[in-house]
């Protein structure tokens, strides 16, 4: 469980997250949504302890985040940044094995191979990452994240470069990890997928938390209109149908 209390984040002179208080419960998939510049990435980085400029309290299972050593944090949580750069042309399995910090040699490679299978890349283990497509590379990095076996996974736009089938598959994988007792926090741009897969939605706008809760509750007509400038209705199976014909003027 992650408790955030009165979180403020400044980037230069701009305040990108303002007075945010939230609790991310264990065993649930939390999706953070909001327009560009809403503060999603900053919030994720702050939760992972990557923003020294963040003020306020963040507690992991009751422990103050700042009191934990880097190693203790790394054992508890794993982070997938938005940037997908891989500097050297390693084999896919070598990249995934970077996530197995506590394993060595054969065990590390065996564990990495299992995560590649989860991401549908078992036949690409020996392929150099520079030879893979953008989507395959993104899945290799997701496999690296899974390989950490952390209790908390924070993913920043993990569906970028993935085809629709793999977007759903990836969310299913992390949903099942949540069901195993992990905490998943994922920032998404696709509101429809967020509504379908998330247990809890956190809607940010201009650095402020404007709504949270189960998707039907969080994505009220008012939130859809004011934050996303759209209208929509929920159908069966949390299927959010966005009405492209009824786009109101911003702020209406």
């Amino acid at each position: 469980m992650i408790d955030i209390h009165n979180l403020d984040i400044d980037m230069g002179r701009a305040r990108v997250v303002s007075n945010l208080t939230a609790r991310f419960e264990t065993g649930r998939l939390h999706a953070i949504i909001g327009p560009n510049g809403a503060g999603k990435t900053s919030l994720l980085k702050a939760v992972c302890g990557l923003l020294p400029s963040a003020t306020g309290a963040i507690r992991l299972d009751g422990h103050d985040l700042t009191a934990l050593s880097l190693r203790e944090r790394a054992r508890l949580m794993a982070y997938l940044p938005q940037e997908r750069a891989i500097a050297w042309d390693l084999k896919a399995i070598e990249v995934v094995a970077l996530g197995c910090a506590d394993l060595s040699g054969e065990d590390s490679l065996k564990h990495a191979q299992q995560q590649l299978e989860v991401m549908g890349l078992s036949d690409k283990a020996e392929t150099s990452v520079f030879s893979l497509s953008g989507g395959q590379r993104a899945r290799v990095l997701l496999a690296r994240l899974l390989a950490t076996e952390a209790k908390i996974y924070c993913l920043d736009e993990p569906l970028t470069a993935l085809d629709p089938a793999w977007q759903r598959r990836v969310l299913e994988v992390f949903k099942s990890r949540a069901a195993q007792g992990r905490t998943i926090i994922v920032s998404l741009h696709d509101i429809g997928l967020a509504a379908q897969f998330a247990d809890d939605l956190w809607v940010l706008d201009h650095g402020r938390l404007v709504a949270n809760g189960e998707p039907e509750a969080a994505l009220s007509d008012e939130v859809l209109r004011q934050v996303f400038n759209i209208t929509g209705t929920f159908a069966e199976g949390r299927n959010l149908r966005i009405d492209p014909q009824a786009l109101p003027e911003h702020g209406a």
Partner: peptide, 8 residues
Amino acid sequence: ETAQSMGV
């Protein structure tokens, strides 16, 4: 960022 999140 990834390295830092892995304890580096």
